[in-house]
């Protein structure tokens, strides 16, 4: 075990229990050639909390998420997950460790039905080998049935029963976002990464999505890391917020703390130059 500040967590104002540190980013620096996308950033994510990452466009938020999900490998710094330093690994191995995500531009599998998309999210729970699958025998058919049941629970939860057999390509944007959340949830992740889950939605869809994010956190206790531009949403939803600007961390704390932070105000609102 590496040394993390392992206090036991706390209870939020609305009675949810926040646990110890789930993941800690230590001095992460990410460069693309000469461009520094993330500069020496450290922060932690606690079990059960909703952690937001905000910042203006190009601040490096999505890059940060890509570092967490193993798609980018930072040149410096380390990721501590569940108390151990995470070695350099491929994205699918990271996913296998219980980190699921959605994407800024919807990345569903367009040629497949909603049901198949969500079932794909459960692939780590299906262990039948190729021969069993080819003969549809023993484990293969049993697993398909069991996992279908789990998937149906998620479909119920996100209220997408009516489209379960529809090809994804035919769905409107808002529903696609919801299906993508369903696919990520199907993996039963320890940490759920949401990259702008509300981008491009109308008010009603945004409210729905907020409700789902809160419900997921409530019901399954899923630790959620969220990138979002809508300040109102972020301040309402999250327990703690990291603020980034030009690849640097300029603020970290509860929504109220962040709101009062002068650097944050400067980055978002600008200040007069007199």
């Amino acid at each position: 075990m590496l040394d993390t500040q392992s206090d036991e967590g706390y209870i939020t104002a609305d009675g949810r229990k926040i646990g110890g540190v789930a993941m800690e980013m230590r001095n992460i620096t990410l460069r693309f050639g000469g461009v520094v996308a993330i500069k020496d950033i450290s922060f932690d994510i606690r079990w059960g909390e909703i952690r937001a990452i905000i910042g203006p466009n190009g601040a490096g938020k999505s890059s940060m998420l890509n570092v967490i999900s193993g798609f980018y490998h930072p040149q410096e710094g380390e990721v501590i997950y569940k108390g151990y330093k995470r070695p350099k690994m491929k994205p699918y191995q990271v996913a296998r460790q219980g980190i699921a995500r959605t994407f800024q531009n919807i990345a569903l599998f367009e040629g497949m039905s909603v049901l198949d998309n969500i079932m794909t999210g459960r692939m780590h729970h299906m262990k039948a080998n190729m021969l069993q699958q080819a003969l549809w025998w023993g484990r293969a058919s049993r697993e398909e049935d069991e996992n279908r049941e789990q998937v149906e629970k998620i479909i119920d939860f996100l209220e997408i029963q009516h489209i379960r057999k529809t090809p994804v390509a035919r769905l409107p944007y808002g529903l696609k976002k919801r299906v993508e959340l369903a696919r990520a949830l199907a993996a039963e992740p320890s940490i759920l990464l949401l990259d702008e889950p509300m981008a491009g939605m109308n008010v009603e869809e945004k409210e729905d999505m907020c409700r789902f994010i809160l419900d997921v956190n409530d019901e399954f206790g899923t630790t959620t890391v969220l990138i979002e531009h809508d300040m109102g949403v972020v301040m309402d939803l999250s327990d703690r917020v990291v603020v980034m600007d030009y690849g640097k961390k300029i603020g970290d704390g509860t929504p109220d703390e962040v709101r009062g932070n002068e650097d944050v105000i400067r980055a978002y609102l600008g200040v007069s130059h007199d």
Partner: peptide, 20 residues
Amino acid sequence: GTLGRQWMAIRDMDIAAEII
């Protein structure tokens, strides 16, 4: 089955498939 869904995932969007 699950293998077929993985194939189709690779077909439809290989990078997203790898990340999930």
